[in-house]
Amino acid sequence: MLLLTVNGIERTLSSDETTLARIVQHLNLEGKRIAVELNGEIVPKSRYSVTHLRNGDKLEVVAAIGGG
């Protein structure tokens, strides 16, 4: 099991999902225009598949929404 905090909420994911690419898929965000911070550092899209997550990691996942 992998315990992560995603956008401030703790989530438990099955342990085969350790790359960020798999996590993004699992969160239904694959192909969406998002940006991700892992423990406060931006992870470029090109590195999702080689970024492995560990217990306790904190993710922020943001998108563009309506605003002025």
Binding site: V6, N7, G8, I9, R11, L27, N28, L29, E30, K32, R33, I34, A35, E60, V61, V62, A63, A64, I65, G66, G67, G68
Partner: peptide
């Protein structure tokens, strides 16, 4: 056009409409 940057809704439908 200006846009804001906010936490995305986790768990929403993959095909939910978006600003984009």
């Amino acid at each position: 056009v200006t846009v804001a940057i906010r936490r995305t809704n986790i768990g929403q439908e993959a095909d939910a409409p978006s600003l984009l």
